[in-house]
């Protein structure tokens, strides 16, 4: 349990550093695209911490702006995809059986495509760019959420608290929002965190291939593509730093996702222990008094 808390701590520390970098990036947007041929291909040093690229742009500024792009697009994509997935899961879990069967088949069909390739096809169909790439990735994320949450939602319907809610005549949407969604909490939060990592990876992969963010944009994948051209002549810093930022981001998010269940279970255990000790349960006390 302490190991998972330490893991959560490391993840949180890494993420905090990345958020700081992303905020710094917001102020470096001009520096990230400023071409200065005179100072092209400089090695990392005091003037340029991560060196400069073939057009003399500061690689540190570009990595920082890339961080804000990656975090913003990762969180936005997962929020939209997770929301849609949750909606579908609730419809599947609480709706009629036939609808559930149809939707599950459809979700399986979408999940049969490797995420990067489906995102690639969707992005190409709607024209290349960061926004269409986000759309493409959302399409791949929705079934992941829907499929895992649906199983949990189905299980919830056979739990006593949902049957009790039905018995006292609560409407299905009310049960879904007030009773089933909290039940899905742990799974949802794990999925949210785990998918941010995947989404950031797929997005940078799309940009690396050339369908995501287009060259002047300091997106990590696009920067690694540019870095490849200079790798064989010795300018390693152009491609290595953005990839390092990408790796740290995905690892931090995955560490966090991995530690969520244990940390949440520990917190719940602490809370029940605390609530059991001093305070008598008011409902039980009232019941005793009445008797």
């Amino acid at each position: 349990m302490t190991a998972s808390r330490a893991q959560a701590g490391v993840a949180a520390g890494l993420l905090a550093a990345l958020v700081v970098l992303a905020v710094v990036g917001l102020f470096l947007q001009d520096a990230a695209v400023k071409v200065d041929v005179a100072s092209a291909l400089q090695a990392p040093g005091a003037a340029h911490w991560f060196g400069t690229d073939a057009q003399g742009r500061d690689v540190f500024a570009r990595v920082a702006v890339g961080t804000s792009i990656a975090l913003a697009s990762g969180i936005a994509t997962v929020a939209v995809g997770g929301g849609l997935g949750l909606l579908i899961a609730l419809v599947c879990g609480l709706g009629p059986r036939w609808l559930d069967a149809v939707l599950v088949r459809l979700l399986d069909a979408v999940m049969a495509f490797p995420a990067l390739l489906l995102a690639l096809a969707v992005t190409m169909a709607f024209g290349t760019g960061l926004l269409t790439a986000l759309l493409g990735v959302v399409v791949t994320v929705v079934p992941v959420f829907a499929r895992t949450l649906r199983a949990e939602a189905r299980r919830a319907t056979s739990e006593p608290f949902v049957q009790a809610a039905r018995t006292i005549g609560l409407s299905t949407p009310h049960i879904a929002v007030r009773h089933v969604v909290p039940y899905l909490g742990t799974t949802l939060s794990v999925q949210l965190a785990a998918n941010v990592g995947n989404v950031v990876l797929v997005l940078s992969g799309l940009s690396f291939i050339g369908v995501g963010a287009q060259p002047p944009t300091p997106e990590w994948g696009a920067m690694i593509t540019e870095g490849l051209q200079n790798a064989l002549t010795g300018q390693w810093w152009i491609g290595v730093f953005p990839g390092l930022a990408l790796l740290l981001t995905v690892v931090a998010v995955n560490l966090l996702a991995d530690s969520i269940p244990a940390v949440r279970a520990a917190r719940r255990a602490r809370r029940t222990r605390r609530s059991r000790r001093p305070r008598p349960n008011p409902v039980a006390a009232a019941a005793v008094k009445e008797a």
């Binding site: 690694i224 990408l246 790796l247 995905v250």
Partner: peptide, 15 residues
Amino acid sequence: SLVGLGTPQFWVALV
């Protein structure tokens, strides 16, 4: 294995 799962393969190739 956690780090491995988070690696961008094209970047590892470059490195």
